[in-house]
Amino acid sequence: MLVLAIESSCDETGIALYDTEQGLIGHEVYSQIKIHADYGGVVPELASRDHVRKTIPIIKALMAKHNLNKADISAIAYTAGPGLVGALMVGACIAKSLAFAWGIPAIEVHHMEGHLLAPMLEENKPDFPFVALLVSGGHTQIVEVKGIGEYEILGESIDDAAGEAFDKTAKLLGLDYPGGPLLAKLALKGEPNKFKFPRPMTDRPGLDFSFSGLKTAAANAIRKEGIHLAGGQSTQENAPENVEQTKADIAHAFQQAVVDTIAIKCRRAIEQTGHKTLVIAGGVSANTELREKLEVLMKKHGGSVFYPRPEFCTDNGAMIAYAGAQRFHLGSKDLAVKAKPRWSIEDLPAL
């Protein structure tokens, strides 16, 4: 069975082809970073319009690249949510229209389930059950996974997601959009212990996260050091190299606080559940410091950590294709276009 997938939840247009016997056939991702960079963040209307322009041409190009036609496709999977409603509607409408025209099912896929199952695209796959850390620009969740569709959220962010906090703090430091990866890169130049930021909500029981206060702590440090930013350039009177080093030190301290906080919560989750397998997925799972910290954690507990390759950490069609293939028998054949900007992963039916 060959599944064509469309991912359009935010600012990447992801298209993929997944065969249930051969595995991933191919995938393409078009990023809208250049479109949104001038605004310092994603503009929903612009994102939707660009999905309209790019989705069909990418589908045609990918199918032609692999010498496939519509008769070869068994089903179409699409991201139904959560995400930007306009962007979701574009993918849903295109998927439903093609499915109707080709006489095949269209399968709605939960975006976060796609991320959660992304490590299954690798040769070394985790076995159920396990604890999953879903960490991205829009979500930070710890989920107990007993099987596909058998999910229990153990903890989640009550305000900013980790990736959102990274991006906002990067903006405070005058870094370009998207700021998260640039902050992580700048942190490599920072000196340890120059700044000390809190590890939010680790002084109390529970697995929920809060990163807005950490972002405020970083903002206060930036203000205290007299780093005033105008158009991304520091206006501080000190030598430029001193300013850049201070920014790197703040970036290092901020990243370390996020990583430590997440590691503490993951340790609690594996101790609470007794599982020896930890899966990390989502855009922030590509962070090298986070991966190394969690690998050390799981080694101490006699377990293993799994994560997708970097290209499958950010939004992509391959993860939607895999999740859609697993849910093929649940695919809807009606013409209803479903886009769910808010959708809990716990509401998914178990396979």
Rank of each mutant, 00 (worst) to 15 (best):
M1N: 05
I15N: 00
G26D: 01
Q32L: 09
K34D: 15
A47D: 09
T55F: 04
I56S: 03
I59A: 02
N69V: 09
S74M: 02
I76L: 08
A77Q: 02
M89N: 09
I94F: 10
I94M: 02
A101R: 10
G103W: 07
G103I: 11
A106E: 04
K125H: 08
V143G: 05
V145D: 11
I153Q: 05
I158P: 03
D160G: 01
D160K: 10
F166V: 10
P181D: 04
L188T: 14
K189I: 01
P200G: 02
T202C: 14
R204H: 12
F211S: 13
S212T: 13
A219I: 09
R223E: 15
K224I: 06
I227R: 07
G232P: 01
Q236V: 05
T246F: 00
A248M: 11
A253K: 11
Q255F: 03
R268Q: 06
A269R: 10
I270C: 09
L278R: 09
V279P: 08
G283K: 08
A286Q: 04
N287C: 02
N287F: 06
R291Q: 14
K293P: 01
M298W: 12
E311T: 12
T314I: 03
D315G: 04
A323Y: 08
D334K: 06
L335Q: 13
V337M: 09
P341D: 02
S344P: 05
I345P: 08
P349V: 11
